[in-house]
Structures are given as structure tokens and as C-alpha cells.
């Protein structure tokens, strides 16, 4: 698996898009620090961008890579290697190279700005960890969609819809349901609903860590009670982890019956 991973990673690291993505984060980091002139504020702005953008880029990269490397995958399939090894190698190759672009692109400006002398280092670390989780989750989801759709256009369409749903529509439905069922106790419902969307889960995790939960009002208080404690943190990370594991597991099931 590491052999495939290595080559997928090399291939991606040399592609123009990895650099564009890296430079984008680099520029973003510098601009935010320059404009805000404050690490903590820059981190909050950054969070809003990362939480929407990493899933989008992960989804598009995942789908694109799968369809573009189809013939090459066929070449690999004819070699004495297990199917799951090939795809897990490719999956990890993409996820790791995206994570590297993210970590380096943002890391460099923040380090130059004096991150180590600031108290925000843990918040920044959490931001990167959550960003990496989102990369791994959405590349896995994208692979699932691509594996289930022979048709490129359809695959792309479903992948973008999936992103749109989790990044925007889910929140809309969530808010409407909170308004409609306003008379009922909703703390448990909102806790559980958050768990079912990795983007929401990441957002809340960071918001609470940044200690601006007061902005969130009553719900914020409940979340703070839950997420603020160590147990809440652990559970949230376990759920994020499950969000990686489940799509990866389904990918392997799907692979067993797939014709190439």
C-alpha cells in the first residue's frame, strides 16, 4: 500500500493544482494576518473559510483524481496487488497531499507572524487537525460517489450536491426544524443533528474551543456543557474519526463487487 501511496503522492505533489492550492492558503494566511493584525481574529476568519473550503476541495480533488487515473488504476489492477491496497493507497495519497498543502500553506505565515509566542497555538493546532479530518472525510466520500458512478458528469454532480447539502442545505434544514419545533426541548436533538454533519461538528468544535460560545446563546451553553468538557471533545473526535472510517469501509465493500 505504501508503494501506491508514494506514487500517488508524488504524482499529486507535482501537479499544478497542489501548488495552486498551497499558494492560495499561503496568500490567505498572510492577507488575514495583515488585515486583522491579530492572530486570534485571523483564526476565527480562517475557520469560516476552512470549514467550507476544505470539504469542497477534498470532494473535487477526490472525484477528479478517481476519474482521471482510471486507466492507470486498470494497469495497477492487472498487477499482483490486492484491490483494496490500490485504492487505499490512492486515497491516502490524495488526503495526505491535500493536508500537507493546508498545513504548510497556513503554517508558514502564522509561524512567521510569531505563532509560538502567542497563546493561540492550540487553537491554530485544532484548526489544522479539524481541517485535516475534513480532508480525509470528504476525499473518502468523493471516492465512494465516484466508485458508484461510472458516468463522470453524474459523479461530479452528485459530489458537488453532497458538498452543498452538508455545507449549506443541512444547516438550513437544521435551523428550520429548530424554529418549527421551538416548543419542544431541543438540546439532545441539536447535539445529535450536529454529529451527523462533519462540517457542523468541526465548526462547533472550533467555536467552543475559541471560547466565543457566548455568541451562540442558549444552544451554545448546552454545547459548551457537552463539548467544552474533555469528554465532549473526545466524543466529538471519535465521531469525526467514525466519519472517516465509515466511508472507507463502504469503499472497500463496494470495491469487492466492482467491474473495471
Amino acid at each position: 500500500m505504501f508503494k501506491i501511496l508514494k506514487y500517488s503522492f508524488y504524482d499529486l505533489m507535482r501537479s499544478r493544482w497542489s501548488y495552486v492550492y498551497f499558494l492560495f492558503y499561503l496568500a490567505l494566511g498572510f492577507v488575514l494576518l495583515f488585515l486583522n493584525n491579530d492572530i486570534n481574529k485571523a483564526i476565527i476568519t480562517l475557520m469560516n473559510i476552512i470549514i467550507v473550503l476544505t470539504p469542497l476541495i477534498g470532494t473535487i480533488f477526490g472525484v477528479m483524481y478517481y476519474y482521471n487515473s482510471k486507466e492507470f488504476t486498470e494497469l495497477l489492477l492487472a498487477q499482483p496487488i490486492k484491490r483494496s491496497t490500490i485504492f487505499m493507497g490512492q486515497y491516502l495519497g490524495i488526503s495526505i497531499s491535500l493536508t500537507l498543502s493546508l498545513a504548510l500553506g497556513l503554517g508558514i505565515p502564522f509561524l512567521l507572524y510569531g505563532l509560538f509566542r502567542s497563546t493561540a497555538i492550540f487553537d491554530f493546532g485544532l484548526l489544522l487537525v479539524v481541517g485535516s479530518f475534513l480532508n480525509f472525510i470528504f476525499v473518502a466520500l468523493a471516492f465512494n460517489i465516484a466508485l458508484s458512478n461510472e458516468n463522470k458528469i453524474k459523479g461530479f454532480g452528485y459530489a458537488i450536491l453532497m458538498w452543498l447539502f452538508l455545507a449549506v442545505i443541512y444547516d438550513g434544514i437544521f435551523l428550520i426544524s429548530l424554529l418549527v419545533f421551538n416548543e419542544y426541548p431541543l438540546d439532545k436533538f441539536s447535539l445529535i443533528a450536529t454529529m451527523f454533519n462533519p462540517i457542523d461538528l468541526s465548526r462547533i468544535l472550533i467555536l467552543l474551543k475559541l471560547d466565543i460560545s457566548a455568541l451562540l446563546g442558549y444552544t451554545g451553553a448546552i454545547f459548551k456543557k457537552f463539548f467544552g468538557t474533555n469528554l465532549g471533545m473526545i466524543i466529538s473526535f471519535v465521531v469525526l474519526f467514525l466519519w472517516v472510517l465509515f466511508p472507507v469501509w463502504r469503499m472497500n465493500i463496494k470495491l469487492r463487487r466492482k467491474d473495471f
Binding site: D11, K70, E71, L75, A78, P80, I81, R83
Partner: peptide
């Protein structure tokens, strides 16, 4: 999968990762 070590295969369309 290990039996494929005794097979050489030439696929119909040759397309490789462009960056290698």
C-alpha cells in the same frame, strides 16, 4: 490476486499519471 504475478497484461488504452 497473487496469481497475477504470472500474467503480463497490455491494456487497450495506454494512459498513465501525467506527472510521472
Amino acid at each position: 490476486w497473487d496469481y497475477r504475478n504470472q500474467i503480463n497484461y497490455l491494456p487497450q488504452i495506454a494512459n498513465f499519471p501525467g506527472n510521472l
